[in-house]
Amino acid sequence: MSQKKETAVLVLTLIITLGLVAGVYWWLNRSGINFGPVSNNQSQQIGANIENFAQVPNIPSGLFSYGGSTTWAPIRKEVDSAIQTVFPQFQLRYTNPTSGAPGSGSGIKMLLNNQLAFSQSSRSIKNEEYQQAQQRSFTLKEIPVAIDGIAIAVNPSLNIPGLTVAQVKEIYTGKITNWQQVGGPNLPIIPYSRRIEEGGTVEFFDENILGGEKFGENVQYIPTTTEALREVAKNTGGMYYASAPEVVGQCSVKSLPLGKTADKLVPPYQEPFVPLSECSQKRNQLNAAAFQSDQYPITRRLFVIVKQNGQTDQQAGEAYAKLLLTNQGQELISKAGFVRIR
């Protein structure tokens, strides 16, 4: 065979192969199999032009267990009962892990082990979790449904204008240990945190703020946000990070403005700040505009994690995400203290 004929055969073979690969990829996506995370634009399309729950088609019947992020608790409280009212056949049951604390990581682990139909997460799926799913002959899809941010809580008596993200990192890695180093009083800093295995918020903080550096030896570990905020309220030098809706409206602590630079500090609350002495009558509200525009420096997405296996579990997870992305679902997310994604 001449060299020209060999070249022509090779080119033809390559074209056929690429065509087959493209055809298989198109068929898999058409069948609902997804190869990665869903973008915000895709998430907007999922719920586009759907006003309320009743307009969402293909809601499955049955009892569906789900679990995951503790950050999601206020959303579950608002959304689940409203879904049950419209679709009583779509029964939802939040399920805690049999051992260890509930959280984004434990929820995804339970999903991988076929203990849940879908899960809720305050962080993205990790590469190793995608790989574990593939080893079990299915894939995972994350669908963003809300915007959240991390707020820094301090004692109300602490007089400080705010912190940069870099300063927050240096405090939690033990490089900054006194409030005087960041423009505050001569007072030791007592940084509180949950342990890294105890939730998606800590994992998000570790990866995105600490950059994988270890927590400093001065960090004190507290099992729950409620207990940590109680400690901050008692100790003038205390500080803690948590989901912004868990901090901003509190009456016993105050949240600090944060910035990428010291000259651009952005509060997680709507200005003007409501003094805590007035908190029982009027509470501080989330700075939704700053979260949506990414002006606030530490924002994240909340995800519904769906198992792509072509079975009822997949239908349940996708239906739940579609409900949350309707206008009614987004209004309930806002009512729960989080920021609409659309």
Rank of each mutant, 00 (worst) to 15 (best):
Q134E: 06
N178H: 01
I196F: 10
G68Y: 10
Q308Y: 02
K5E: 09
N49I: 04
P60G: 04
I150H: 02
W26G: 09
T226W: 05
S2N: 13
R340P: 11
P188N: 07
I83F: 14
R194F: 02
R342P: 03
G19A: 03
A73N: 11
F118D: 08
I171A: 13
N52P: 08
Y296M: 06
D263T: 07
K175G: 00
L302R: 09
Y172R: 00
Q91D: 07
A8Y: 02
S277F: 04
E170P: 00
Q220M: 09
Q328H: 09
Q311G: 11
E128N: 02
S39I: 12
Q281E: 06
Q330T: 14
G238Y: 03
E318R: 13
I143C: 00
E217Q: 01
S137K: 14
S121D: 01
L111N: 12
G212Y: 08
A48F: 01
L18V: 06
Q44C: 11
Q120C: 00
A133N: 12
T85D: 10
Y221V: 08
S157D: 01
A289Y: 07
E6V: 10
P102H: 08
K234Q: 12
L286D: 06
T261V: 04
F87I: 09
E318Y: 13
Q131K: 02
Q135L: 08
T13E: 03
R230W: 10
G19H: 05
N127M: 00
R283Y: 02
V56L: 09
V306F: 15
Y66N: 10
I75H: 13
K109W: 02
V274T: 06
N29P: 15
V79F: 12
I16F: 05
Y241T: 11
Q120F: 00
L276V: 06
F138K: 12
L324N: 12
Y130D: 10
Q55R: 09
T261E: 06
G107M: 12
L18I: 11
T177V: 02
D294P: 06
V219S: 14
I83H: 07
E197T: 05
E213V: 00
E170R: 10
S99G: 10
T95D: 12
K234E: 05
A48L: 07
V154S: 11
D263L: 02
E203L: 10
A146S: 08
R195E: 14
Q120A: 00
L111S: 07
L258E: 05
N155K: 04
T177Q: 04
G212C: 07
L111W: 07
L14P: 03
A321C: 03
G149H: 13
